[in-house]
Amino acid sequence: MTAPGVAAPTGLERQPPRLMLARPILTMRGVARRYGDVQALAGVDVTVYPGEVLGIVGESGSGKSTLLRMMNLEDTPDAGTYHLALAGREPAGPDGRNLFTLDRFQRRMLRAIHIGIVYQNPHLGLRMGHTSSGNVAERLLIAGNRNFAELRQRAREALEASEFPVARMDARPNTLSGGMQQRVQLAKAIALEPAVLLLDEPTTGLDVSVQALVLDTLKRLQRDRAITMVLVSHDLGVIRTMADRVMVMRCGEVVEEGLADQIFQDPQHEYTQQLVHAKL
C-alpha cells in the first residue's frame, strides 16, 4: 500500500548510491592532452566503480568530451595511463596494461568488444544507410559472430532492451526520429554487454518528453543490468537524474568530485556553486 499523498513507485526513482566496490573497473591517471595552445586536459584522474554512473559536467570547452574520447581510445594523450579491469571477460583483456600503449588493432578490438558508446550525434555512431538491426549486428560481427539467425536474435534482444519497437528493427536510422536513433545507438552499445558504457550528451537535441523517455531507458538498463556508465552532459538535470557520482570539469581540470547529492546540495568549489545555482 502507498501512503496517502505519495505517488506509487514506478521503479525509476532515484536510487541511493550503490556501494562502491573495492576494485575500480576504470582507472585513468594523469591524463594530459594539448591541442596547439589549448590545454584540453591537464592531468586528469578518473576512477569508475562497477555498476555506478559517473556524471561529468562542465561548460563547453572544459575537456569533458575530450576525456570521453580518451576513454573510448579514439585519441592518445600526451601523458597518462588508462586501465580497464577486464578479468574474466573473453577474449582475455589486457589487464594490467596501460591501454594508451595498445596498437591500433588492439584498440579497435577493445573498443568493439569492451566499450560501448552513444554519441550526441547519431551520425557518428550509426550507419544511416544500413538497417537498425544491421547496425547492432555489426558489433556482433566484429566480435566474430557468423551465425545469421543468432545475429538476428541478439540484435532483436538488444533493441528490445533499448525499448526500440522491434517491428521497425529493419528500418534505416535515417528514417527514424532522433529519440529512436539514440535507442539504436544504445542497443548497438550494449549488444556485447560492454565493461563500460560511455554516453556523450545522449539526450542533447531531443525534446523534453523524448529526453525523459531515453533517460528512463538508461535508468532501467542501469538498474537491470548493472551497466557501468560514464555520462557526459552540460545539462545538470540529466546528471542529477542519472549519476551516482559527479565530476566537475573546467579548463581541462577536475575542480570537484563527489557523490551526486553532495555536489548538488553542498557544492564546495566556487565554479560548481555557480553551475548549480545557475541551474537552480
Binding site: A112, T131, E138, G144
Partner: peptide, 11 residues
C-alpha cells in the same frame, strides 16, 4: 578486420 563485409551480406 573483415567483420563489416559480413554486414553487407547481412543487409
Amino acid at each position: 578486420d573483415y567483420g563489416q563485409l559480413w554486414l553487407i551480406l547481412y543487409e
